[in-house]
């Protein structure tokens, strides 16, 4: 019985460890300027104020960076699902020569720090005329998200019995009809989770985004490049705003967390 209680105490401590820093940054983001600079600080917020947050959104370029981030993440989402899902389907449904080599290629991308590859790409992007464009950033982010999309959708399609598709064929469907009428409706929640995951990967990525842009900054790139010459309230509000979508997304896809990370990691 005491052991159970100890477990519970430890579990709650871990919850505090995870949530306290988020709570603190939220507190700072929603207080006025003097409280941000106050010392010593109490744990609880002094007074609720939108001053810091509105100051953040008032800074020139912030809105544009947010818009850019959303656009890049949306493109990444579309690209990785459109490129990844067919490959995942092929891996799940067919045994073909080269399947293992392909799987290896996908797994190999993990053994390399992909964001670093933004350096040679930046040089090439300048030549191609897509340097400092949202498309360029989205392409690199797709390279980051694609391996996940392939592995996740492959396990997703694997979990939909092949017999369902076969039954549809015997009942008069061609391949495409069977996919659209039977597989797609069943795969949709998982595909949505995959898409959201790709979105988060892009939303959070900073190295490549910073390297590949000058004016068309995404939010993390904008924050990073202005860190040194921006006041603390701006940074705190920015940090908090970066976290918010992540919290929502993780909540939405929590059911698929293990498919996404667990199975994707085999």
């Amino acid at each position: 019985m005491n052991l159970r209680r100890l477990y519970m105490v430890l579990a709650v401590l871990l919850v505090v460890w995870v949530l306290l820093p988020i709570f603190l940054i939220a507190t700072l983001a929603f207080s006025d300027r003097p409280s941000v600079f106050a010392w010593p600080k109490g744990l609880l917020p002094q007074q609720f104020s939108l001053e810091t947050i509105s100051f953040f959104f008032g800074v020139e370029g912030v809105w544009r960076a947010i818009r850019n981030s959303l656009a890049v993440a949306a493109m990444t989402l579309v690209f990785s699902v459109l490129l990844g899902a067919p490959a995942g389907y092929a891996l799940a449904r067919y045994r073909f020569a080269g399947a293992d080599a392909y799987r290896l290629l996908i797994l190999m991308t993990r053994a390399f720090p992909l964001a670093i590859l933004a350096i040679p790409l930046a040089v090439r992007f300048i030549q191609l005329g897509i340097y400092d464009t949202l498309l360029g950033v989205a392409l690199v982010h797709t390279a980051l998200a694609l391996p996940f999309a392939v592995l996740v959708t492959s396990s997703l399609f694997l979990s939909i019995p092949k017999e369902l598709e076969e039954a549809a064929w015997t009942l008069g469907c061609n391949r495409l009809q069977a996919f659209l009428r039977v597989v797609l409706p069943l795969a949709l929640p998982g595909l949505a989770a995959t898409a959201i995951f790709a979105f988060v990967i892009s939303w959070n990525e900073v190295f490549a985004a910073t390297l590949l842009t000058l004016r068309e900054r995404t939010l993390p790139a904008f924050l990073l490049t202005s860190l040194n010459d921006s006041p603390l309230p701006f940074r705190f509000a920015g940090g908090f705003f970066l976290i918010v979508p992540a919290l929502v997304f993780i909540f939405v896809i929590r059911r698929y967390l293990f498919t996404l990370w667990g199975i994707a990691s085999r």
Binding site: P161, E163, L164, E166, A167, A168, W169, T170, L171, G172, C173, N174, V182, P185, L186
Partner: peptide
């Protein structure tokens, strides 16, 4: 011919009833 053109019907071991 593909299955759809054979005018057959099939019952599968795991039933393959469409869950949606």
């Amino acid at each position: 011919l593909p299955p759809r053109a054979r005018r057959i019907a099939m019952v599968f071991q795991n039933y393959a009833v469409f869950p949606h």
